[in-house]
Simulated scan of single mutants.
Amino acid sequence: MQTQGFHHVAIICSNYEKSKKFYTEILGFSVIQETLRKERDSYKLDLQVGNHDRIELFSFPNPPARIGYPQTEACGLRHLALAVDNLEQTVNELESKGVPVEPIRLDELTGKQFTFFKDPDGLPIELYES
């Protein structure tokens, strides 16, 4: 199998308007397309992340809560990692918008800095300095 990379990451949110605001206004992702799927009582929001990547943000009535934070090490998606040029500047920007961010750490394997914050549903998002 030959792939060209990821096409998108899909995220299901519990509060569509709150998550839409977070991903567009706080994180600054641009809207590609917003679709109301009446038959499913659901929205699908396609977001542009960087030059080539996408997030599909879905809303569904009463989705079950996320099981736990990465420390639980459960099977499945552990976190979403975003590459940034300047980690400290990005952390300061998020904190100025009221988003709590964990202390910056150093990846022992690569020597790069990283940290975590959460989306409105507690999905862990990593910032990794490229």
Score class of each variant (00 low, 15 high):
Gln2Val: 12
Gln4Asp: 10
Gly5Asn: 11
Phe6Ile: 15
Phe6Gly: 14
Phe6Val: 15
Val9Ser: 10
Ala10Asp: 02
Ile11Thr: 10
Ile11Arg: 10
Cys13Asp: 07
Cys13Val: 11
Asn15Pro: 06
Tyr16Glu: 10
Glu17Ser: 13
Lys18Val: 15
Ser19Ile: 11
Ser19Pro: 12
Lys21Phe: 14
Phe22Ala: 07
Tyr23Lys: 05
Thr24Ala: 13
Glu25His: 13
Glu25Met: 11
Leu27Ser: 06
Gly28Ser: 12
Phe29Arg: 01
Val31Met: 09
Ile32Leu: 13
Gln33Leu: 13
Arg37Pro: 00
Arg37Lys: 15
Lys38His: 13
Glu39Ala: 14
Asp41Arg: 08
Ser42Asn: 06
Ser42Val: 06
Ser42Trp: 05
Tyr43Phe: 15
Lys44Leu: 14
Leu47Pro: 02
Gly50Cys: 08
Gly50Pro: 03
Arg54Phe: 07
Arg54Trp: 01
Arg54Thr: 06
Ser59Pro: 03
Phe60Glu: 04
Pro61Asn: 09
Pro61Val: 07
Asn62Met: 03
Asn62Tyr: 04
Pro64Leu: 05
Pro64Met: 05
Ala65Val: 00
Arg66Cys: 00
Ile67Phe: 04
Tyr69Gly: 01
Thr72Gln: 08
Thr72His: 09
Ala74Pro: 00
Cys75Lys: 07
Gly76Met: 01
His79Leu: 01
Leu80Arg: 03
Ala81Val: 00
Ala81Gln: 02
Leu82Gly: 02
Ala83Pro: 00
Ala83Val: 02
Ala83His: 09
Ala83Ile: 02
Val84Arg: 01
Val84Trp: 02
Val91Arg: 04
Asn92Gly: 00
Glu93Met: 09
Glu93Asp: 13
Leu94Glu: 07
Glu95Leu: 04
Glu95Gly: 03
Glu95His: 03
Glu95Arg: 14
Ser96Gln: 09
Gly98Arg: 03
Val99Gln: 03
Val101Tyr: 05
Val101Ala: 08
Val101Arg: 04
Val101Phe: 05
Glu102Asp: 14
Ile104Leu: 07
Arg105Thr: 06
Leu106Asn: 14
Leu106Gln: 15
Leu106Tyr: 09
Lys112Glu: 11
Gln113Ser: 15
Gln113Asp: 07
Gln113Trp: 06
Phe114Ala: 06
Thr115Tyr: 06
Phe117Asn: 11
Phe117Val: 11
Lys118Met: 09
Lys118Thr: 14
Lys118Cys: 12
Gly122Lys: 11
Gly122Cys: 11
Leu123Gln: 12
Pro124Asn: 04
Glu129His: 10
Glu129Tyr: 09
